[in-house]
Simulated scan of single mutants.
Amino acid sequence: MIHDCAFQQVGVGLRAPHLTLFAGMEAPQVGWLEVHSENYFNPESPARQTLRQIAERFPISCHGIGLSLGSADLLNHRHLTQLKHLVDDLQPMAVSDHLSWSSVNGQYLNDLLPIPYTEEALNLVCDKISQVQDTLGRQLLLENPSSYLSFRHADYTEWDFLSWVQQRTGCGLLLDLNNIYVSSFNHGFDCDTYLAAINPAAVKEIHLAGFTVKKLEQGEVWIDTHSRPVSEPVWQLYRNWVRQHGAVPTLIEWDLDIPPLEVLLGEADKARQILRDTEASHERRQA
């Protein structure tokens, strides 16, 4: 058992190419693992059975993409029931989903779409999160989105909207620093302004990932593809956050063009080193 605090704080996304590696007797050492909840909804599937074995050895976080919290549709109770069964089965360290929508009239889209930051949307999202938390009997973590367009009418900035949702529902926040960095370029806001508005006590998890730059005739857009190493500006945002607020469970996400596991673990090592350097700096100041 590894007791290094920095080691235990940093996890990686468990994706299909690495599932059997973590189920084996010589499983790689990581602090914790995150899975996409919907991939394991079938309790009789081989994947669910393998995940049960892995959960006996590693803390698991369940990260969903299907609650569609910003949709005008009612909550999909079949989806929510399946999520509850998964959570009851695994007893994960955290359960999370996104501030976005992906369904309309019962039809699901293969994307996490932005919502208008209006009073009406705030009431809708808060109501759904409260329903989810009541059903699960535990706190839900809400992840800030990446986005590529914004609505002309808004009553709130994204960071104020997120803060109000957290205050009204008591949900936790999953702070995705890559999403903030990508959206800051796409929409022209300042990352420090965004982060200064976030209550650090509400942040229960941090995501780090890579993005892709796409050049169009109209200009350049940054896309949160999770297909590259974490960029240096995002590492710097992470350094600044942990220096100011301390460590929270941190995940390295990599969902497309998934590399050999050694590359993913190397990114996790970078996060651990930042945590160790920050802790050492704090101890020197206290000496």
Rank of each mutant, 00 (worst) to 15 (best):
H85E: 13
P259A: 01
F211N: 13
E283A: 15
P46W: 11
V213Q: 15
L140T: 07
S103H: 12
L142T: 09
C171I: 06
D176P: 05
R138G: 15
T135N: 07
P200W: 05
A201T: 12
I2N: 15
P46S: 10
N186W: 04
V35K: 04
A16F: 11
S281H: 11
L75G: 02
S163F: 00
N76Y: 01
S147H: 12
E158W: 04
L141R: 08
L33K: 07
W164S: 06
N178I: 05
L83P: 05
G219R: 09
A247E: 12
F161V: 05
F58V: 06
L86Q: 10
R272G: 00
A94C: 03
H245Q: 03
E205Q: 15
L275G: 06
K204P: 00
A202M: 02
R152T: 14
E262Y: 00
E279S: 14
D134T: 11
Q9D: 12
E205C: 02
L162G: 00
Q131G: 00
R239V: 07
D89K: 02
V182W: 03
Q91P: 00
P46D: 12
T20S: 14
L149S: 11
V242R: 06
S183F: 02
E267R: 06
S71L: 04
W164N: 12
R285F: 10
D224E: 10
L208N: 09
D255N: 12
D134V: 03
K214L: 13
L173E: 08
S150V: 11
N105T: 07
F161E: 08
I274H: 05
L237P: 00
G31H: 09
Q244I: 00
G210H: 09
I258P: 05
S227V: 05
K214T: 14
P46A: 08
G172I: 05
P114G: 03
W222D: 01
A16T: 12
G31F: 05
Y117C: 06
L141E: 12
L175R: 08
S183L: 01
N110E: 15
S37L: 04
W159M: 02
N199C: 04
G170Q: 09
H226T: 12
D88N: 14
L33I: 08
G64V: 08
S96L: 03
T250P: 04
L69W: 09
P249R: 15
V182M: 02
N76F: 01
